[in-house]
Design a protein around this nucleic acid. Sequence first.
DNA 1: AAACCGGGGAT
DNA 2: ATCCCAGGTTT
Length: 355
Amino acid sequence: MNIERLQQALLNWYKVHKRDLPWRKTTDPYLIWLSEIILQQTRVSQGLPYYLKFSTQFPNVHALANAPQEEVLKAWEGLGYYSRARNLHAAAKEVSHNRDGNFPSSYQGLLELKGVGDYTAAAVASFAYREGVAVVDGNVFRVLSRLFGDATPVNTTQGKKVFKGYAQKLLNKGQPDLHNQAMMELGALQCTPTKPNCRQCPVKDYCSAYAQSAVAQYPVKERKKYNRVRHFFYVYPQYQKQVAVSKRRDNIWKGLFEFPLLEFEEPKEVQEVLESKDFLDLGLRAFQLDTPVKLRAHKLSHQTLHITILPIHFEDKPAAFSHCQWIAKASLKDLAFPRPLRQFLNEKQLNLPFD
DNA sequence: AAACCGGGGAT
DNA sequence: ATCCCAGGTTT
């Protein structure tokens, strides 16, 4: 294979077909890093509005570092993988307070920032500094597995090593920034998971899988099937114009707000929940239960949540929920909630505009 | 090495 | 219903 010809064909294709994306118009490591964290495991169409919001609300690393975590999580609300937001904030503090606002100037240095792994370090280093390190994201795994006809499962330790090696060997050392972006763009637009457009592919003449009419067989993945089912019953405690909320401390949705939660591994009827020890242990007095609201199943990549809301009104200011904070309903909109709770709250506001 | 961590869109 | 997305961290 003539690597120089392949590199040139790739760049020529990229210059014609590349999408016009805002993070491609800058070499500011802050903006590039910000875009890369947002785009981890996230499609461009989903991440773009968040990038626009963050780059406006936090125009530089100091603005982000000096914001409260609750403000950062609120801006991240709905995007998922919230550890990204927490690590983003921690890394901003590190750069702002301990590095005088300067991001690490190399791939190796970038790797030390929280939330920055192999892909993101290579992306920032090549885009912002033109360092000669190859990026390997989901797109590049797919392109390389087809190009070399390599059936090593991509989602394994060995796969990461093998395909990183291909990527580094293929890298255009003169223009690593454009080359890396071109590889990813090729995977996103041309060498797609299903129905790749091989007919118009700039590198089809070099593609092993194409030569064997076996493009659809790549990439090979080891698939793990694990889907935990959980049943959440949220007590939604209301007293006059106030509600009780708490902040999640661990696991899923860490750092986001929620309501008092009763969780079960097995399905339960509302009546069973009301008679359960966990509910009775809340020690609620003088309350009225409204119609329970069953949300539709919330499917995550690795678990399914069945969520039921139990709205209750207290007649007197309750002594319970000491671990919660009582806040005005009007300020619910300022807090970051998990997606299903945010949808419930927004619909409830529509139904009860004067509540 | 395997599990965990969100949400949305395409098929 | 399943797969995949500009992946990283924890166990």
